[in-house]
Simulated scan of single mutants.
Amino acid sequence: MKILAPDVPFDLDFPSLLPDGGASFAPGGTDTVATYAMGEPVPEEHTDAEVLITWSNPPKVLADAARRLTRLRWIQTLSAGPDLVLRAGFAPDVVIASGQSLHDDTVTEHTLALILASVRRIDASLAAQREHRWAKEIAFAQADPVTDREYTLDGARVTIWGFGSIALRLAPLLTALGAEVTGVASRAGERSGYPVVGPDGLDALLAETDLLVSLLPAIPATQHILDARLLSLLPPTARFVNVGRGATVDEAALVDALRSGRLAGAALDVMETEPLPEASPLWDVPNLILTPHVAGGRPRRAARFVADQLTAWRQGGDLRNVVAR
């Protein structure tokens, strides 16, 4: 079985974790591991690969692989979201598995950083710093009984939309800071002690939300799901943080809500078009923090994850994170 591994700038030396360095992975079979350049088409001599591992491959490279790698049986992406692979056009019988869990810790850290930066108005402080201005208005607002609760997570009602593994890392940290956390998922219930509402409870929940955090994936059902109607349900003092996928947000509606004051603030690590075009209005919207899709950074413990996945594949076991197609 030929396995194609990307030339990533982090440890992915998973063959060393396999029996005989991956040369004879299972009785009766021989594995060959070849490295390819992520930003370039797969060389002709490797188009017979049965397993393709992806990371930051450009969409055109993935589309090219979908056309030319006709013997593929399984694609393992190291990204938490498999949206780029799903859109590339691979045959429907090719198994696609995501890298969910490989980014939980770093995305959680970045999400918490964006939340605190927005709630504590770090963007306003930095703007005042560039102007050499002492921003007394921030201190006054925190001391005012009318607005003081808008500057803290203590007692804040936080809604996490997309209550998966990252949410389960993030929620206890928010709880420790005094927030009341509720999840939104496809099915209502309780997860790790946190209440979770289904889609039919979303509208009522948004009306009582101080901070909305989106961890939603980019799939057809979530395209622009946060639209003008849902944004209008949030209180004008609410804030929004998106570390899921940019395509889930109607950016024009978000810009309008921020400019009009119908939404107090937002922080985005993901945008619908990346890199963000120079002409995008998001650059200059008030009360908006932007980071350049850096929450995940790089997959952690990827070598062991891939090795375990390969073991399961060879032994006929269940792969983790298989994506429904």
Rank of each mutant, 00 (worst) to 15 (best):
A167W: 05
L288W: 02
R229Q: 05
V322L: 04
G162I: 09
Q309E: 12
R245K: 14
D200A: 15
R191G: 01
A143F: 12
G296P: 04
A221T: 13
L86W: 12
D200E: 15
P277E: 04
R130A: 11
L170I: 02
L69G: 02
L116Q: 02
L112Q: 09
G244T: 14
V107G: 06
T32L: 10
G164N: 13
G155P: 11
D250W: 13
A204T: 14
N287D: 12
G178C: 04
G28D: 09
S232I: 02
D284L: 08
D269H: 03
S101P: 05
P275N: 07
A295Y: 03
R262P: 02
L112F: 00
R133H: 15
G261E: 01
A204P: 08
V249S: 00
R301D: 15
A128Y: 06
L216R: 03
D64T: 12
A176Q: 10
I75G: 00
P286N: 09
T248Y: 06
G317A: 01
G317N: 05
N287H: 15
R121S: 06
V323T: 05
P292Y: 07
I225Q: 08
T47P: 01
P220E: 07
V184K: 13
V306T: 02
D13Y: 10
V158E: 07
L114A: 02
P217H: 10
V243W: 03
A91L: 06
W134N: 01
L276R: 05
Q142G: 04
P58C: 14
L177T: 01
A63W: 12
I96N: 08
D64S: 14
V85I: 12
L62C: 11
A307N: 09
D93F: 10
L69Y: 02
V146Y: 15
L263T: 07
S232V: 05
R245W: 03
D13V: 13
A295N: 13
V107S: 01
G246T: 05
A37K: 09
A204W: 11
E45T: 13
A88Q: 04
W74C: 03
D83M: 07
R239A: 03
D104P: 00
R169D: 08
T54Q: 09
D48T: 06
A128N: 03
D256V: 01
L78R: 11
T77S: 13
L17W: 10
R320K: 12
L226H: 07
R157G: 03
L310N: 03
P286I: 05
D123C: 02
D48L: 08
L17S: 07
Y194G: 00
R187M: 06
Q315T: 08
R130H: 14
Q100D: 09
F14V: 01
D11C: 08
A88W: 04
H224Q: 15
N321I: 11
S101G: 05
S280F: 06
A34F: 10
A324Q: 15
I138V: 03
Q100K: 15
V243K: 04
G155A: 08
S214P: 00
P286M: 08
F10V: 04
F14D: 06
S232L: 04
R301P: 01
P15C: 14
V197E: 00
L17R: 11
K136T: 13
A179E: 04
L226C: 05
L254C: 00
F10M: 08
V95I: 15
T32P: 01
S16R: 09
L263I: 00
T182W: 00
G198V: 15
G81I: 06
D210E: 14
A253Y: 10
L310W: 14
Q76M: 07
V249Q: 02
R157L: 10
